[in-house]
Design a protein around this nucleic acid. Structure first.
Length: 286
DNA sequence: CCGCAGTAAGGCATCTCTCG
DNA sequence: CGAGAGATGCCTTACTGCGG
């Protein structure tokens, strides 16, 4: 026999669940945020984790529902071959193309257009590469938990070449909308990212620090794990990190320092929107 | 542990050629 | 001219070995 209290508790739990579902439904109906042509809008979870890692070319390690290192607050599991910064280029390009439509809609784009949006030159090797990225992004599984919101599925629902139409057909998962909710996404300067081409670690750092208006110091070891670097020795990674930070500074003007405690400091000039955000909570000091 | 130089191997840009 | 195939060669990463 249930007590009145138990019944009440069950009822309130049910209501909470319903509210959560309602919230999710609401988010799914919101339009995709719009960002200017010069940036790429990317969910923070993709930039604050090793999901798209700073890994070297060559054979990719296969992951099976493995927990991906990420900043606190995100839980990410991934199944499939490791994703790299080039895969991120394409995913960003797809989101970019989709941003003016409601997610879930079909995108049709030529090989040429996709390669251009991803910052690649058009040629035999580029087209072959695009095929392999399409296979990776559509055939792998990501599970993301953040803020009571769950996302599960592939990064791209459909991604195939329609030989008759002579173009690619892409269908994004409508639930991707959840990853853009609560302003939990970042505008990444595309021109800066392109300057860091072929330098996975510098690209990863650029994405990571783009998500922070005022970066906080992190240990070299933490960055090693967060970036998904496969360097086996930490001092090797430290050397790579130094080079990458120097490239990053050249491309963005963000200053860097590794102090005696092995803490990495990055100083940056906040973007206008980040500056507004920073000035909000605190009263201006005088 | 750390820095530097050298190495291997693969990613990627680019060039040329062919075909319609 | 434009699209695509194939070949070539540069550039990068991460590892190794040596000396401090």
């Amino acid at each position: 026999m249930q007590s009145t209290l138990e019944r009440l508790q069950a009822l309130s739990a049910e209501r909470a669940k319903a509210r959560e579902a309602e919230k999710t439904a609401k988010i799914l109906q919101m339009p995709m945020p719009v960002w200017p042509e010069s940036v790429r809008g990317v969910p923070n979870v993709a930039l604050r984790s090793a999901l798209f890692g700073a890994i070297k070319r060559g054979p990719r390690r296969y992951m099976d529902r493995e927990l991906v290192t990420s900043l606190e607050g995100y839980e990410v599991r991934y199944t499939g071959p490791r994703l790299d910064q080039s895969d991120l280029d394409v995913w960003e390009a797809l989101l970019h193309l989709a941003r003016r439509q409601a997610l879930g809609n079909r995108i049709e784009a030529s090989e040429r257009q996709l390669l251009k949006e991803a910052g690649r030159s058009y040629g035999k090797s580029g087209r072959e590469w695009l095929k392999s990225v399409a296979a990776r992004l559509s055939a792998t599984t990501v599970e993301i938990q953040h803020d009571h919101q769950n996302y599960g599925g592939s990064l791209v629902d459909e991604f195939y070449r329609d030989d008759i139409a002579g173009c690619y057909v892409i269908e994004l998962n409508p639930r991707l909308q959840l990853l853009f909710a609560h302003e939990d996404w970042t505008q990444v300067e595309w021109e800066q990212r392109q300057k860091l081409k072929r330098q996975p670690l510098a690209q990863w750092l650029h994405g990571f620090y783009s998500t922070h208006a005022r970066p906080f110091p992190l240990k070299v070891k933490t960055l090693h794990q967060l970036s998904g670097s496969e360097a086996k020795q930490l001092y090797h990674f430290r050397a790579e990190l130094r080079d990458a930070l120097a490239c990053l500074e050249e491309a963005t003007g963000w200053t860097h320092e590794i102090d005696t405690n092995d803490l990495v400091h990055v100083g940056k000039i906040p973007t206008p929107s980040q500056a507004r955000y920073l000035s909000k909570p605190k009263q201006p000091k005088k």
